[in-house]
């Protein structure tokens, strides 16, 4: 695993390496087990169809968790001060999701980042911000 970026190598506009993943039903089952969230909309296809959904869909917190993975690979584990998102759209099995993380400001050691998770069509799934405290 490559070392995280540091203050000296970051500037406004710096982009994190993109994490891309095509979502599977197995991903949803694994996240259900790991999180303890057994809402049937995320693993029970007949119940999702009965609720007028086209299929099961991903946990919002799985989307946020994937963004968090890309974030910590970029700025390091234990550096985040804040991380917030809005869940804009559901995610669906078969969709290819990509993280988009860009440095929006640097003040002292505090780095602000705009974060998004998008699909291949460019539709935003989660949109948010993070701040991280980095050593010089």
């Amino acid at each position: 695993m490559s070392e995280p970026w540091n203050l000296a190598t970051l500037s406004v506009g710096s982009e994190a390496p993109v994490l891309t993943h095509t979502l599977t039903r197995t991903d949803l089952v694994r996240y259900a087990g790991a999180s303890g969230d057994y809402n049937p909309m995320h693993h029970d296809e007949p119940k999702a169809l009965a609720a007028k959904q086209p299929s099961v869909f991903g946990h919002g917190m799985l989307s946020m968790g994937i963004v968090a993975t890309a974030l910590t690979h970029f700025i390091g584990v234990g550096t985040l001060e804040t991380f917030s998102v809005r869940f804009a759209r559901q995610t669906w099995p078969g969709e290819t999701l990509s993280t988009k993380i860009v440095v929006s400001a640097i003040e002292g050691g505090l780095v602000s980042l705009d974060v998004r998770l998008v699909n291949d069509a460019g539709e935003e799934k989660v949109v948010g911000q993070a701040t991280a405290r980095l050593d010089a």
């Binding site: 695993m1 694994r30 996240y31 999180s35 968790g65 993975t69 690979h73």
Partner: peptide, 13 residues
């Protein structure tokens, strides 16, 4: 460790 795997994080930490 199970949760890290579920959010696609392969960091050995």
């Amino acid at each position: 460790s199970f949760f890290a795997q579920a959010v696609l994080d392969d960091d050995p930490i």
